[in-house]
Simulated assay, not measured.
Amino acid sequence: MYAPQEDTELLAGALVEEPVPPGADVLDVGTGSGALAVTAARRGSRVTAVDVSWRAVCATRLNALRAGVPVRVRQGNLFDPVRGRSFDLILANPPYVPAPDGRGRPRGAARAWDAGGDGRLVLDRICREAPALLRPGGVVLLVQSALSGPEQTLGRLRTAGMKAAVTRRRRIAFGPVLRDREVWLRERGLLPAADNEEELVVVRAELPV
Rank of each mutant, 00 (worst) to 15 (best):
E18Q: 15
R135W: 04
T167M: 03
A12Y: 03
E206D: 01
R204K: 15
D101Y: 01
A193C: 03
P95F: 08
P94Q: 08
R170V: 08
L121H: 06
A92S: 15
N196K: 08
E17R: 15
N77Q: 10
A110I: 03
L157P: 03
W113F: 15
R186I: 02
A92L: 10
P22Y: 06
P21W: 11
A146H: 12
A99L: 01
R158H: 01
F87H: 09
G119H: 05
M1W: 04
A41V: 11
P131S: 13
V16G: 01
P22I: 03
E187L: 04
V71E: 13
A146Q: 07
G23T: 12
C127G: 14
R107Y: 02
A12C: 14
W54K: 07
L154E: 05
N196S: 05
E18L: 15
T48V: 15
A56V: 08
A24F: 14
A99W: 02
L157T: 00
R204I: 00
A115D: 11
D51P: 03
P176Q: 04
A160K: 01
S86I: 03
A3L: 13
E187S: 03
D80G: 06
R42M: 12
L62G: 00
M162K: 02
A164Y: 00
G175I: 00
P21Y: 08
G189D: 06
R61Q: 15
R179W: 01
V201Y: 02
E187K: 09
P131D: 11
A41P: 07
W113E: 04
A56W: 08
K163V: 11
R156K: 15
R170N: 03
T153L: 00
V201F: 03
A64T: 14
G138A: 12
G13D: 14
P100V: 05
N196T: 12
A130T: 12
T167Q: 04
Q152V: 12
E198V: 04
G23S: 12
N196I: 00
V166I: 15
E198C: 03
L133E: 08
A35Q: 12
G68Q: 11
P19L: 08
L154N: 04
G84P: 06
A115Y: 05
G102E: 11
Q75A: 14
V82W: 10
L178E: 12
E206N: 00
E199Q: 11
D25F: 07
R83V: 15
N93S: 10
V166N: 04
A132Y: 05
E187M: 01
R66T: 12
A130Y: 06
R42F: 07
A24M: 12
G104N: 06
R169I: 02
R83D: 07
L178W: 05
R156G: 00
E199I: 03
L142C: 12
G34A: 10
V97Y: 00
